[in-house]
Design a protein around this nucleic acid. Structure first.
Lengths: 89, 89
DNA sequence: TTGATAGTTAGATGAACATCTAAATAATAA
DNA sequence: TTATTATTTAGATGTTCATCTAACTATCAA
């Protein structure tokens, strides 16, 4: 997973907010949607980008799809970013 | 300085490489240019974006303009990113 | 099955972005 | 003052991106 895709995923304010929401616990799309002023397709698109960046994951539960932080990947990504930002080599 | 601007600046591979080069020490535009396959105006544009994100700074030295990492801002930004990525509140 | 609910996918549109060439600015050298 | 060198700014172009509406898919309930 290239670092640029991670940064790009993190660069959009709505997506930052999605991550913040999911830090508190998993949520369905409709539940997430309540916190935004975009249509569901737009939200779905943002979720897709976060998923492709491996930051979140999803599972179906009946009619709903539940999104949650991808915790293990999150740690790895944090490591990678810290390493990139560090001045030493 | 919004976090989104930082992430956006970091999202472009050429800009990541510029930062990596500058970690080793300050460089003029022409020196930086040697490491890339873009024209000077394009490089100038990337430098501008990094500068607006407060990641680097520049000073004139004769005919040349010397770019360097903005170390203090760099630390602050690293802090901010780590805080954003942290799960606790 | 048929209808309702929850989401995604497709296609269109305007804005932002990376890139280029050409022109402008700034500093030095002749 | 006139070239030359170093860099930025302006303007154009193709691509990526965020957003929308409309259409599709999947699950559940009647």
């Amino acid at each position: 997973m290239p670092l640029s895709r991670t940064f790009q995923a993190l660069a959009e304010p709505n997506r930052q907010k999605i991550l913040d929401l999911l830090k508190a616990g998993e949520l369905s799309v409709s539940e997430i949607l309540k916190h935004f002023n975009v249509t569901m397709p737009t939200l779905s698109h943002h979720l897709d980008i976060l998923k492709r960046a491996d930051l979140i994951s999803s599972r179906r539960e009946g009619q709903q799809i539940i999104y949650s932080l991808n915790l293990s990947a999150f740690e790895e990504i944090t490591e990678q970013i810290i390493k990139f930002l560090s001045l030493k080599n």
